[in-house]
Simulated scan of single mutants.
Amino acid sequence: MAVTSFTEQQLVEMVDLARHSLLSAFGRCDEPDIPDWLSEPGACFVTLTSKGQLRGCIGTLEPRVALGRDLFENARRSAFSDPRFAPLGVNELQDIKLEISVLTPFSPIAADSEEALLAQLRPGRDGLIVEDGVHRATFLPSVWEQLGEPLEFISALRRKAGLSADAWSDQMRWYRYETQHAEAALVAK
């Protein structure tokens, strides 16, 4: 069973693990050891921003590997494998802020209409997943900061999944989750 509640100190240690994963990829430090307490399965996202703009974000929705390994690998994937961006360059390190989001297990939202879905959303708290056939996408709870209105949030999520902004079908499924997160500058200034 995945652990889904962490102390502030544990979150700081997790963001440090992600930082060191990236910095070691650039030869700036030794590859970090993954603490034993992160050996339980877990799911996380690692988000990189540069000067307030998204620079990479990769994660997992379901626990498949140890949370420490997921943090380590998603940090590197967000820097080097996010298809929306060129790989992170050494000249960018000073401007990068790194954020980790550790996910709770997701649960289905029973909604037979868009109105029913909107009535159940908890802005600022819910991460949301939409699935419709082969289409699937998620927004972390932090996306509410940019898309604060529930209809705007779900419309953008449907577009991210490759659907129309107002798509609705009986096959569409919605799921919610929450996160714990921590952030830090990649390189101390």
Rank of each mutant, 00 (worst) to 15 (best):
S24V: 03
L67P: 10
S101C: 10
T49E: 09
K97R: 08
Q120G: 07
L71E: 00
D33Q: 15
F72P: 00
L151F: 00
F106P: 14
R176V: 13
K189E: 00
A119Y: 12
H135V: 02
L163I: 10
E92D: 11
R64F: 02
T138P: 15
T179P: 02
Q53K: 15
K51L: 08
G42K: 03
R176F: 09
C29N: 13
G124A: 02
C29L: 10
A156Y: 05
L11P: 11
S164E: 15
G68V: 03
L61Y: 09
F26T: 02
T138Y: 02
R28H: 11
F139Y: 10
A2V: 11
F45M: 01
C44H: 02
H181K: 14
E40S: 08
N91V: 15
V143D: 03
D132Q: 14
P32T: 01
K189I: 01
H135A: 10
S24E: 06
S155R: 14
H181I: 07
G162E: 05
R136A: 05
D16V: 02
P105D: 05
Y175M: 12
A182F: 03
W37I: 06
V65L: 08
I154D: 03
V102K: 06
L118Q: 04
S24C: 05
A167L: 08
A110L: 15
A18C: 07
M1L: 08
Q10A: 07
V134T: 13
L17Y: 00
E183A: 11
E92W: 04
F26Y: 11
G52V: 10
I100R: 01
L22Q: 00
V46P: 13
Q53M: 06
E31Y: 10
R69H: 12
R28E: 06
